[in-house]
Every structure is written in C-alpha cells, then in structure tokens.
Design a binder for these strands. Sequence first.
DNA 1: TTGAAAGCGTTACCAA
DNA 2: TTGGTAACGCTTTCAA
Lengths: 346, 346
Amino acid sequence: MSGRDKKQQERKRLKMADIARIAGVDVSTISRALADSPRVTAETKERIRKVVAETGYVVNHNARQLRAQRTGLILVMLPNIASSSFAEVVLGVEDAVREEGLNVVVGNTQYDAGREQVLANQLVTGAVDGLILITGRVPPVVTEMADFDRRIVAVSRPVEGHDIPFVSIDNLAAGRTIAEHIVSLGHKKIAHLAGPLESPVFRARRDSYLAVMQQVGLSDLARTFVAPSYDLEGGRLGMQEMLADGQHPTAVICGSDEIAIGAMQAARAVGIAVPQDMAFSGFDDVAISEAYEPPLTTIRIPRRKIGERGARMLLQSLDIRKPRPRSRTVDYELIERASTTGTTAR
Amino acid sequence: MSGRDKKQQERKRLKMADIARIAGVDVSTISRALADSPRVTAETKERIRKVVAETGYVVNHNARQLRAQRTGLILVMLPNIASSSFAEVVLGVEDAVREEGLNVVVGNTQYDAGREQVLANQLVTGAVDGLILITGRVPPVVTEMADFDRRIVAVSRPVEGHDIPFVSIDNLAAGRTIAEHIVSLGHKKIAHLAGPLESPVFRARRDSYLAVMQQVGLSDLARTFVAPSYDLEGGRLGMQEMLADGQHPTAVICGSDEIAIGAMQAARAVGIAVPQDMAFSGFDDVAISEAYEPPLTTIRIPRRKIGERGARMLLQSLDIRKPRPRSRTVDYELIERASTTGTTAR
DNA sequence: TTGAAAGCGTTACCAA
DNA sequence: TTGGTAACGCTTTCAA
C-alpha cells in the first residue's frame, strides 16, 4: 500500500535509472541485483528489492531482449487452429514460456507445406528464436541453419527424418491400454477404425490394437478400417464401410474421439443401439466426449502439459550451455465411461 | 530464389545497416522507405524493396518498440481459460493484433477480483500497452491512470460504471430471435432457464424472452428459472427445480448451450423424450452443440470476429491521433437444429 | 531527397 | 562489492 500517494508513477513508467537513484546505487548494481548476482551484498539486494516492490517497477523487456540479441519470441506451428486440442497445447506452451518472460506467436498452416515454409522463414531470418512443431514435419528451409536442431522441438506428432526432441504420450502403450480394456469387458468381435494412416500417431494406435488381438488369441476376429479424414465425417464414412458387409462387431476402437462420435452416429442411423448393441471407444478426451450421449470411453491426453514440457525443452535447447534435451513421454489416462461400460459385453 | 548462395545470411541475422550498405544508402533512408515515407524517391524505395526481398530482412521488433517507447504487448484478461468460447475470442484478438506486429498475452482470472488486480498492474506499470477485458469489470487500480479509458476495451461482456468501448452481439435482439423461433413452432408453454443473473448478458437474454411472451399474449404461461452456475451442472440443477412442480413446459429456452445440455440430461433422466416431449434451445453455439444428440438449436456468436473487432478498437483507441472508438455490435445467427425442429410442437 | 547522430533501457565489461 | 560506460538496432530531429 506504500507509494500509493506517489504522483509520478501514475504518469510515467519507471526505468532502472529511477530505481537506482531512489536506492542510491548505480544502474549496474540494480541490474546485478535483479539477476541475483553473487556480486551484490545481501543488504544492497534487500534495499533494492524494497524499492522495486514499492514502486511496482518491472524491467523493460524490449531493452533486455535487444541487449541480449534475442527476439524473445517462440513460434508454434500447428496444422489447424480451429481444433481445440491444438489450442490447448498452445495454452501450455504459453504458460511455460511466459514464466521465462518470452512470448508466443501461433502460425496456422492448414496442413499446407507452402504455408509451413513461409512461417519457417520467421526462424531463418531471426524474427523468432525457436519453433515448436505440431505439424509432424520439418520445413526444408530451416535445415540451412547451422543450429536448427537446437531451435526446434516437436510436440504431439513426431517428425520423421530428423533427430528433433519430441514430447507426447506413448501412443503404442495407450493403444494397448484401450484395447486391453475392451478385451477385459469380454468383447471378442472387436473392430478398429483408425484415423488417416499418413500420421504415425494413428499407425501406432492401430498397431497396438493388432498386437493385443494377437496376444489374446483373437487375431482371426480382428478387422481394421480407416477413416478418410480426421473429423466427424471421416468417422461416419469409415463406419459405413465397416457396416457394409453385415458382420457387426460388438465393440469398435476408434483412432480419435471425433472419429468415434461420427462412427456412433453412423451406427445409430442404421438402428444399432449404443452401447447396448455396440460399444465404442475414442482417443484424446476432447471436451465433447464427457458430455456426449453416451459419454465416451477414451484416453485422456494431457495436452496442456505436453505444451508446457515442449516449451521447456525448447528453452533448454536454446541455451547453448545446457545439454540438448532428450525426447520425453508424458502420462496418459484411461477414462472409462458409459460408451463401453454401459452394458455387459457378450 | 536469388540470394540462395549468399553464405552470410545463413549465419547471422541482418540488421538495417546491412541493408543500407547493400542498397548503397543510409540507414535512415531505409527506415523511411520501410515506413513508406513520402520523403524517399520511388526508385530508391524500389531498390530497397528488392534488397529486402532478396535478403529476407525483417526489422528487429525489440529495437523498434524500445525506440517507440511501447511494449508492443496487449493483455487479454478472461475469467476462465479452460472455456473454449473465450479461447476463440483470443484467437481473433491475435489475428488482428499480429497484423500490426504486436503480441498478445493472456491472463486468466478464475472470476477472482484479486487476480484481476494483480494482472491489471501490468497495465499500470507499463508492462503492456493495452487491455482487453472479457471479465465484465474494470479493476479499480487502472482508474488511477490518467488515460486508462484509452487503453481498455471490453468484449463479450459489457463493463458497468465506465464508458469503455465495447463489442459484442446484441443480446436483447438475439434473445428475441430465439424466443420468436420457439413461438413460431407453435409452442405455448415455454419456460426460460437463465444463467446466473449477476451477468448482464444473461439478464438481457431473459428480458427478451419475457418481452416476446408478453407480445404474443403468453405472459400467463411464462415461467423463469435460474441456473446456479455457468456449466452443465448448473443446467441440471436448474432443470430439476423447474420439473419439481410437475407443470412440464413443451419448450425450454436456455441462457447458454452448456446450461441447455445439462438441462436436457436432467429432463431425460426423468423419462422426458427430447425433443419429442420437450424442445430445448441454447445460446453461443459452442463446438459440442452441433454434434450433440439431438443437435442443439442455438444462437451462433462470432467469437473470433468479436476478438478481432475488439483488438482493432483497442489499437485505434491507443492511437492518440485517432478518435476514440465507439461501441459496436456484430451479427449473430439463429442456428436451427433438431432439438427444436425435430418434432412439431403442440 | 538524403545523411549524421542522439537516444530509447538494459546488460556486461572494465576499473576502482 | 560497486560504478562508469559502450553497445544492442531502430527512429527521428536536425543539417546539408
């Protein structure tokens, strides 16, 4: 509450020199104190700390970054800004990055390699310090940079062909978890409806399904299908194909929540009761899954945490004094809901 | 493609002085040319433009902002970062703001006035240039600033007690639109389930319902209820209260999509068929509404556009040479889906 | 129309 | 342990 009557701070932003004058020391001492340098006495630090607290002083970021020869900007490149699952990763990135006083800009590529190139130029020209890729591929231009592999991390979707630090869940393990859950409910005729297989993420999830089916001796009953797109419509079309031959499974494991919801709509459209006649599972735990009717069993992916981790990895990677970060996985969680547990399987 | 063989640009970021040397002019001329000043000849501009294009030069933002005495940061303050409807507004803000070369930071308040104060200090101390409020109230600290009313705009939720530029849909008109839609389907026993009435947004939507009921001579049948919270659970509780007296309406107009979905769950839990026995409408058109079963009739709010408009208003407001922006409304849209049109009303 | 130079606020080097 | 000062890249005023 002190300093409330100080008129000057209402009008003009204070600079380090002002703090120095008030505290009776040089600006260089202020700078060192704020950086917690050991070359400032505890008493001096304390005096400075008080002045800073009273005045509400905050360092000028532009000046700091200018001096440090950095832009303080991190570019997040994602394929579809309208998707809430990508948005949540960005929120995690912002949390972590802002703690370090940096900022985040988001580039939307719409799955277009040309857009990716253009955005990647931001890194090449030095307009941003680092790049977080959710696009699953490294734009060729950036490989011209000598230290490009220290300026990029990948999250959610791995990149192929480069040794870029990566953070995500273990899709193979998660795929196994959900398949084992379905099996444990007593289902035997279990089908799989994958997302587009260009994506290693969807390939991994399907591979795990096949592995589990073999492991429990149900290989003969395994049937796989592919949704032609990532969205609800892809799920509907994939499901229609599955139902075309009349051999209805009692459970369908889907590559994503959106595909699962589309698939459930298609199944119900031909009179199949969900989950009584046919159980469904998804993947991702997007917002809609809990509120859907029936609520959808799925794998919860900590998207925000993935964003945070990815950002921290990038910050470490950008710091030349530190070792290059290694790829990491984060924990996922099986969320059992009525779409699989609403009935007892045969 | 020219300049591809230039080695130096792969190693070090170019500065304005480099461009000046290559173009054979002074840095000040480059600066003027990039600002499209009339005091540079067309030929000089053209020559500079070419060099810039070939080298991929981009100005150093920190230096520019430092010189301009601005931070280049806009703070968006919102009450709940987990809500996708707020997130979409932020995306719109980012679009508009980034066009001007500025950046956005997001502050999450969790409806807490203390958090709001702390974040508002960012503006007071000059750590950000301006503030976009989605919280519906102006933190008291900022009113100490002489020009605070030029540094703040409100979006989605109006602020009371200050003349702050505001952008949103016209909630009164939209409330009328949805009520008239329900009436036009032939419903007479129409109830209203509002969101918490602290919010002027929910008050406006309910007032419109009452006005329409009176206008069409159904005042005697009007019944209003209030959900105790903004979420699904609020909708469930509000609906349970409505159903307690046994007088079932044939249609329920809800203050938001989430409340509507909670209400539908509660209705079905007691054996009411939706929409056959009871029609429901929402408000907002959040992502889930289209995919829900039944798909929900609602008012689509262009949240991203609201964010864009708000940001542009703030940028104008920050420019002292320009007139203060006036509050604006953006268009909404009635989205008819099966939750009201899936059956013919009595 | 163009050039020279001061200054924005910070950090880090060199002296004291 | 502390102080003085040059430099970061840009914009703008003043001169030419």
